[in-house]
Structures are given as C-alpha cells and as structure tokens.
Design a protein around this nucleic acid. Structure first.
Lengths: 337, 337
DNA sequence: CTGTTAGCGCGTTCAT
DNA sequence: ATGAACGCGCTAACAG
C-alpha cells in the first residue's frame, strides 16, 4: 500500500527545498520564483499530492474544522439549521464535524469535549438547553475550557452559557400566537407542552399562557409529553379523553407535535379546524403542504444557523441577539363565529 | 491566552516520562503501575488535559474521522441517512465530517478531496450518481486515489464507483409499484420523472415504465422537472394543462415531489384520490401524516446509512448489496371501479 | 514496568 | 528568492 505523497516527496521530485514547496502549495505570503513554482506544482500534480490537514493543523496550531452539535439530524428543525451551518462554514473555508445528542445533556457535554480534543476552530451548539442547572453548569464549564484556550463558540437557544447566542424568540412568538388566536374568537385553549425539562418547550408554553392571561382569558389546559410526533399524537388523545368538548383550540409547542396531534384528531373523527383549531411552532418547510395547512410561528431556521456561524467566527464577542418569530395564520385555525 | 495543556505538561506535573503519560491517557496496551497511573490521571485532571487528536492522528497516521457527503441535509431523505451514519460512526468511536454538494458533481469531487486531505478513515457517499460518465470518472479517480493509500469508501446509490455500495432497489420498487397500481385498475399513468441527468430518477422512471409495459399497458406520460417539492408542483400543473383528463394515476419519483404534486392538484380543485391517484417514492417518515396519506415505496433509509458505515469500515471489500424497496399502499391511490 | 528517542507531515523563523 | 533546521503534540520502537 503506497503511502500518501508528502511535501517532502514533492520537494525532492521538484528539486527544491521543503520550505519552497510549502510556500507554493500552501498559501504563504512569501513569494516564490516563477520557475520553481511551476516545477513544484507539476511535481505535486504528478504525485497526486494533497496537503495533510492534520499535520498542517498541528504545525499552524489552528484547524479548519467547525464543530456542530445538534439534538437530532432527522428532526427537520435541526436538519434545516445544520444545512445552513454547513453552507456558512464552507464559505469560510471550514469543514463541519457534527455530533448528535438525542437530547441527552451528557452526550452534549461529551461531544463538546470531543470537539475540543479535535481543536476545532469554533463550536456551534444548537438546541434547547436543559432546565437542570447542574448539567448546564457542567456544559458551561466544558465550553469555558474550550474558550479558555482560544476556541470560539456560539449557541442557538437560550442564552445560558455565556457565549454568543442566537435566541429564538419563543416567548414573544407564542404570546403573539395566543393573541392572534384570541382575536379569532377562541377562549378555551389547550397547550401540548412537551417535556417539562426542555426550556424551549417551557418558554413557548409560558409565552402562550401569558398572552392569554393578559387578555383576561382563562388559563389553558396543559398536557405534557414528548417533543416529537408521537408525543403530539398521544397528548392530543389524552386531551380528547379528559377535556373532550371544552377546548376549541390547541397549541402544540412545535410543528412536529402538531402533525401528530392532527393525525390523532383525524383518527378520532374530530374535524380540524371545524371543531378544533390547531397551531404549531417553527414553520418547518417540509410541513407546509399539510392539509389543513398548519397555523404556526415561523422561525428563520436557516438564517439562525448562518448567524450562529458568523458569531462563532466573529473576531469579538457579540453577546445575544434575538431571532424574530412571526405568526403565520393558515387553515388549521379558524375564526369562531 | 493560556495554551492547551500538552502531554508533556502532564508528564512533568506528574513527574513521569512522556511515554508513561501517553500510555495511561491514551489506550495503549502497555500496562503502567498503579501509583504512576494515579499520579498521571490526577495531573491530567488538574490541568484539564485533552489529547490533541490532530497530533494523535499524525503520530498514529490514522484518524478517527469518518467523512460523509450528501446532496442536501435539509432534504429529509439525506437527513435520515445522515442521522443513521452519525450514530453508526459513533458506535465505532468515530466523529463525522459532513459535506453538502447540492447535487453539484464538482462539489462532490471537491469534497472527497477535502476529506482525503483530512486523511479521514473512511468516506461514505450518499446520493444519486450523475448520468454524465465524464464526471463519474473523475469522481471515481478521486476515490481511487483515496483508496490507493489505505482509505476506505462506501456508497449509497448506483454501483458505479467500484466501491462497496448499498444499492436502493429503485428499479424493482418502481416496477412493483406500477404492478400494484395496475392491479387497482389504473391504465393511464403519468410519471413526474425529475431531472434527466439523475440516475435515481431515471431508474425509477424506467422501472415503472417497464412494469406497465410487461402488463401490456400503454406507456406513461413523462413529465420532467426538478427533483424537489416545487418541481413536483410545476410538473403536476403541466400535466393538468397538457393531459388534463386522460390520466388517472400519477407517480412522482420521490415523496417530496409527490407532496408538491398533491398541493398543485388540490390548488386546481382536482380530488385525490377521487379523480387522480398519486404515489411517491422513499416513504419519508416526516411525510407519513399527509392527507391523503401517500402511497409510496419504502426505502430503509436509516438502515442504508448504518449499512454503508459498516461496509466502509469493514475489513475487506463486500461489493454491492441491495436495499429492498417495499410498496406501501395508502389513501392517495384508490381502486378504479 | 518505565524512560529515551526518533519520527509523523508541515509551518516558519533565521540565515544566505 | 531560497534553503536549513527547529518545533507543533503525540506514538512507537527500543533500551533498561
């Protein structure tokens, strides 16, 4: 098995020094004479030379890798964000190393450690923080260690880690949604809240409840459950069983849950939006063609990913910035007459 | 800015040699005395030491990175595959570096080069091959270079690159779909074929047409277009305009296009499956809750990703193996009476 | 069991 | 403009 050609191989073949070969092949500022430059380039081509980035990173003590950690790539929310992160990183000449945690905070901490070991240039963390202050502190400690030796980090989520953060406006978005739905005439609401420990879910639930309260409307029925499609399905069934007729509008704290809820209601023969209106959150592109079209709160997912990369790569700390959420009324909610 | 602690720092602090520190901290087979081992571990903890993987890779000349290249992470097909690849790689102790090509063969070749530069342990390529033999040859050359120096590679798609490949059974799946739909009584079909240059699209179209032909049915109306949601939408509109009434069943060569087609038909007031039946391909999990539920051909997406990782990491070449496609009849297609 | 030392492939002064 | 030599952080003989 022939080994990869090295810079030294190229230098020898071209009859120049290692230093010269390095200068022509890897963007040095130094100039190299036309003649030698040509010979080096030809030798490199003949040998199929590719610079060994691990060695280069070591010598430069600076890698060209960006670390990304998400909960779950098969969740369209993260798929969208990851896609944008990969593109943005590419524009900066960086490759992306991804890790998935499946909402396990330990795994998240572990993956940050892995990325630190790789000495990646920057880390982008996407996804809701845990409500547990202890794990949050440990994650923060791990990130601080990374940043302590020159690493940069940015976050998409709640501003809890002391790094530059893109904060999706969950609270305000849900609040505005509540107001919009109230304007449609609804007064009796239910919220499929997702799991108690997820801050994103909690923020959305709280914002929605606040919106109702500020309008003098009764508090919504709260039904917890997993943050995914099946969780929404189960929660909707539970709602039907316990509060069958009182509620006219249900808010699932994310689109994927809303889809599950829609399926459950359909399965139970409940007309949407005829008898019950349904709303979600995120505005997942892939889900825009549902029937009935889902009322939701749009988050600029791709933009958030792009922005996080810029923050992570930016020269100096930028603090937290909000990602505006916008209510999108569609057919799954209707006005009460 | 303090630099990262190095093995040498740890060794000094623990009062042992570099080699000893290396042995206790990085899985060497060699044994180290209890006392020294403890001191090293404590020193490492105090210093917040993490092994520098770039340096480790260089010294071992073996990295622990797996390269993955997909067309588009925001496409649920690839999101699903990528997710499985990341998990499977994790089980082998490898981190994943992803690249997205957005169906640009040049970008694909370029990304393989990047991964080769990283000296990744293995590369998994997912996504339809181009029908252009020239670019395929260049990609193949790049992969051969990678494999020539000990790299391993596996592919998900058409078996065209001379590496271990998981081949989705597009042809047979589409053929079976055609037969199933014919059994429902349909005789006049249209196929939204996707772009001419995409082999996956071509295989599915061909398989479907063959199925019809073998049954003595007339050839389907063929409408090309982009491989995405909007492509399906446009193609369906075109179909309506040109062959409004003849066709009773349309096959979109992937689910995402089928969704677009469904939307277009709905927009035109055409009842599905009342007047026209619609079928897709892939069985994207996120799309299972559409109304009407989409008839499609299921591909074991996650399994395919997992399998590709295993092939790529396997000791010796395994050749090509098929991923069985299975017809799933749902509500978007109905029997003609 | 433990320590010494020579690389792994490349970047970068420092001379020339 | 070019080359010689050292260092980046770690592994792997080899010696003891």
């Amino acid at each position: 098995m022939p080994r990869d050609a090295t810079l030294e191989d190229v230098a020898r073949q071209a009859g120049v020094s290692l230093a010269t070969a390095s200068r022509v092949l890897n963007g040095s500022t130094r100039q190299v004479g036309r003649a030698l430059r040509d010979r080096v380039e030809q030798a490199a081509a003949e040998l199929g030379y590719t610079t060994n980035r691990a060695a280069q990173a070591l010598a430069r003590s600076a890698s060209d890798i960006l670390g990304l950690v998400v909960h779950d790539l098969s969740d369209p929310y993260f798929a969208e964000v990851a896609n944008a992160v990969v593109r943005a990183a590419g524009r900066h000449g960086l490759s992306v190393m991804v890790g998935t945690t499946f909402r396990d905070p330990e795994a998240e901490i572990g993956y940050v450690a892995t990325l630190r070991a790789q000495r990646v240039r920057a880390i982008v963390l996407a996804g809701s923080r845990s409500a547990d202050p202890e794990v949050t502190a440990r994650l923060r400690a791990e990130i601080d260690r990374f940043q302590g030796t020159g690493g940069r980090a940015a976050l998409i989520g709640q501003d809890l880690l002391g790094v530059d953060t893109v904060v999706p406006d969950n609270h305000a978005g849900s609040r505005e949604l509540a107001e919009a739905l109230a304007r449609l005439g609804h007064t009796r609401f239910a919220v499929l809240t997702g799991p108690p420990g997820l801050l994103t879910a909690a923020d959305r639930t709280a914002g929605f409840a606040e919106g109702l309260a500020s309008l003098g409307l009764p508090a919504p029925v709260l039904i917890p459950g997993p943050f995914d499609r099946d969780g929404g399905h189960a929660a909707a069934r539970e709602l039907l069983a316990a509060h069958g007729t009182e509620v006219t509008c249900v808010f699932a704290v994310n689109d994927v849950m809303a889809v599950g809820a829609l399926a459950a209601l359909r399965g139970a023969g409940v007309d949407v939006p005829g008898r019950i209106s349904v709303a979600g959150f995120d505005d997942i592109p892939t889900l825009r063609d549902l029937t009935p079209a889902l009322t939701t709160v749009r988050l600029p997912l791709a933009e958030m990913g792009t922005r996080a990369v810029e923050l992570a790569l930016g020269a100096d700390p930028a603090g937290a910035e909000a990602a505006r959420a916008r209510v999108v009324l569609r057919e799954s909610t209707r006005a009460l007459t």
